[in-house]
């Protein structure tokens, strides 16, 4: 017998079938059995729920779902890594200064943040932050050893930027001021309290103000970093005393302040205002900003920085940490200038 014949014969076994009567009765019995386990209503509901999705899933199986979902997952990963890298580079760019390769990233991120901020208050804060960045950058650049024209260029460019930022903030503050007259009044009511507290604090730390009306002190939040500056530059002399509790700390050398080739920052006349504004910082923001501008014009970037920090603090206490890091740069300068005070 050939294989072909054999297969043919095997195939003919298909004719073996159960009798039709049994088939029908069996079907009915089975149907009755499965019906007892389900109700008609539930049938419909489940059927609707199963829907096309279930059919498709069964039709194409998990492999197709995997094939569809995997690229989606990968795409999400790619997007995440791109944005993640962006965020990481912005973070990395945070402490850059002009000339650094990532400096442009910092500027772009600043601009982007301004573009996506719509709340006026936040915009002001952001503006201050940017201005602070510029001031810090100026300081950084000033610290550089070389004395090239390039460096001068950088500084002057930064100065222009800083001026711009301050103007923007000022403008915004003016606009806001008009809008919130009532809010300001409330703030005004709180003013005496603030002042009282402040002076108490100061009194506890150092009995400066009480003793000497001519001495103005800028407390940067840390006692040791207190800065006391005279309002008359002429009075500064070389005599140095230990800082005592009267707060009459002398200037070691005013010229030490000049760490760069720029003209020495002129801390003088701005200081009284600074002191004042420290007290009122929570209230009269635009005044402070105006002060910052004055400082800027006098190229006293330290003071500008400090004031910007004050404003920032006033606007948002949560930002304290950042301001301290901003203020943390002050000691370097204050170490140099130690303290300027009037000679009595």
């Amino acid at each position: 017998m050939q294989e072909k014949d054999l297969l043919k014969k095997l195939h003919s076994f298909k004719d073996v079938k159960p009798d039709a009567a049994w088939k029908k009765s069996s079907r009915d019995i089975l149907l009755a059995q499965i019906s007892s386990s389900t109700t008609g209503g539930a049938d419909e509901a489940v059927l609707n729920r199963a829907g096309l999705f279930a059919i498709l899933k069964n039709l194409y199986g998990d492999s197709v779902f995997a094939r569809v979902t995997q690229p989606v997952g990968i795409a999400i990963l790619i997007v995440c890594s791109i944005f993640g890298a962006g965020v990481a580079s912005i973070k990395a760019a945070r402490d850059t200064k002009p000339g650094d390769s990532l400096y442009i990233a910092k500027i772009i991120s600043e601009k982007a943040r301004v573009a996506v901020t719509f709340d006026e208050q936040k915009k002001i804060k952001l503006g201050l932050e940017i201005a602070t960045n510029r001031a810090e950058e100026i300081k950084e650049v000033m610290k550089e050893e070389d004395d090239s024209s390039e460096r001068q260029e950088k500084i002057s460019q930064l100065a222009v930027d800083l001026n711009q930022e301050i103007s923007v903030v000022k403008k915004r503050l003016d606009g806001q001021k008009k809008e919130s007259e009532t809010g300001k009044k409330k703030a005004e009511e709180n003013k005496p309290d603030n002042e009282l507290k402040k002076s108490e604090d100061d009194g506890a730390k150092k009995d400066v103000e009480a003793d000497n009306t001519e001495v103005f002190r800028a407390n940067l939040g840390k006692e040791s970093k207190g800065m006391e500056i005279s309002d008359k530059k002429k009075n500064v002399d070389d005599k140095k005393e230990d800082a005592d509790k009267t707060g009459k700390e002398d200037v070691k050398d005013d010229n030490n302040k000049k760490s760069g080739s720029l003209p020495a920052p002129v801390p003088t006349s701005t200081e009284p205002v600074r002191q004042e504004e420290k007290k009122n910082s929570r209230i009269d923001l635009d005044k402070i900003v105006e002060e910052a501008r004055k400082n800027y014009e006098k190229e006293d970037y330290d003071a500008t920085l400090e004031i910007l920090g004050e404003v920032n603090r006033a606007i948002d206490d949560d930002k304290k940490e950042k301001e301290e890091s901003g203020g943390g740069q002050e000691p370097k300068n204050s170490k140099e200038e130690k303290a300027t005070s009037t000679k009595d």
């Binding site: 539930a42 489940v46 059927l47 199963a50 069964n58």
Partner: peptide, 19 residues
């Protein structure tokens, strides 16, 4: 596959078809 899905959703007609 459609038959299987219908069975999965407890479709009695599908059971008859399968049978």
């Amino acid at each position: 596959t459609i038959l299987y899905s219908r069975l999965k959703s407890k479709d009695r007609e599908a059971f008859i078809e399968m049978y």
